[in-house]
């Protein structure tokens, strides 16, 4: 299994895609930080400039790349079918579940790399901006939020791999996943949190402690630990489903 994980890491390292996605992620993180801090204190904004949670809210933007990591996971799998590398992959390792497992691990690892880079950028940018404006730089809840960011970034990749394995068609998987996270989930979490809190997006908001910010009526989402468990459950259940349902199909 170690050899297989090494191979999957090598697959990711020998194409340009991860680098571009990392740059995209960091750009999204910066935008998120800027938006959070620059709107703080404006009329109608949920945060005040002396809010002790301001730094925590700002660095929560480090999770802005979660969708990028999701797409990375989807592409890591669907490209094998699109470019036909699934054939040599499954010839070297006929037990297809092991290939899937190794890919899940490798993509999680890359998610961790993305998470660390995102956290560093978010912290540096937030502290610089807040200090420059003379706003609150209280570290209240920052530790928990950063832990949540890492968790989210590590789990979205495997969820993407599993979705990719279930859908197989690259365009359908990417478009479907984006439509789901940006439209369906956002609406569910904001307008119908009793349902939305159980979606991956709802669980993510819970882990990042965005609760009352994410929902339109300021309702609470799941507790942090439950959100974390729910995300793990999504990754595991979707992977098992993929291994059982779609992975064994004929490769012609």
């Amino acid at each position: 299994m170690r050899a297989l994980v090494r191979a999957e890491v090598l697959k990711l390292r020998t194409v340009a895609l991860p680098l571009w996605l990392l740059l995209t992620t960091l750009a999204l993180v910066l935008l998120g930080v800027l938006a959070t801090i620059l709107t703080a204190g404006l009329e109608g904004a949920p945060l005040q400039r002396d809010d002790p949670q301001l730094l925590a809210r700002a660095v929560a933007s480090a999770s802005g790349g979660n969708v990028v990591v999701l797409v990375l996971g989807i592409l890591a799998l669907t490209q094998e079918f699109r470019f036909g590398t699934a054939t040599p992959s499954f010839l070297v390792t006929p037990r297809r579940g092991r290939v899937l497992g190794a890919k899940l691990i490798a993509v999680s690892g890359l998610g961790l790399v993305f998470a660390v880079a995102s956290v560093v950028v978010a912290l540096v940018a937030s502290l610089a901006l807040l200090t420059a404006r003379g706003d609150s730089t209280s570290w209240d809840s920052v530790g928990e939020v950063l832990l949540g960011v890492v968790l989210v970034m590590v789990l979205y990749g495997p969820i993407g791999v599993a979705v990719g394995a279930l859908v197989r068609n690259q365009i359908a998987a990417v478009v479907g996943a984006l439509a789901w996270t940006f439209i369906v989930e956002q609406l569910l979490v904001a307008l119908l949190p009793s349902v939305g809190q159980w979606t991956p997006g709802g669980a993510t908001a819970a882990v990042l402690q965005l609760g009352d910010l994410a929902t339109a009526g300021g309702e609470d989402l799941l507790p942090v630990w439950a959100g974390a468990l729910l995300l793990v459950a999504y990754a595991v259940v979707l992977s098992v489903l993929a291994a059982r349902l779609t992975l064994r199909r004929d490769l012609t």
């Binding site: 050899a3 090598l10 194409v15 490209q79 470019f83 036909g84 054939t87 070297v92």
Partner: peptide, 24 residues
């Protein structure tokens, strides 16, 4: 096999390195 593919953005040597790694 027919229709065996390569990732177009991966170098040939890396393609083989991936397979060699997976096969240990």
């Amino acid at each position: 096999l027919e229709a065996t593919g390569f990732h177009p953005g991966r170098r040939a040597r890396d393609h083989l390195r991936v397979l060699a790694a997976a096969a240990d």
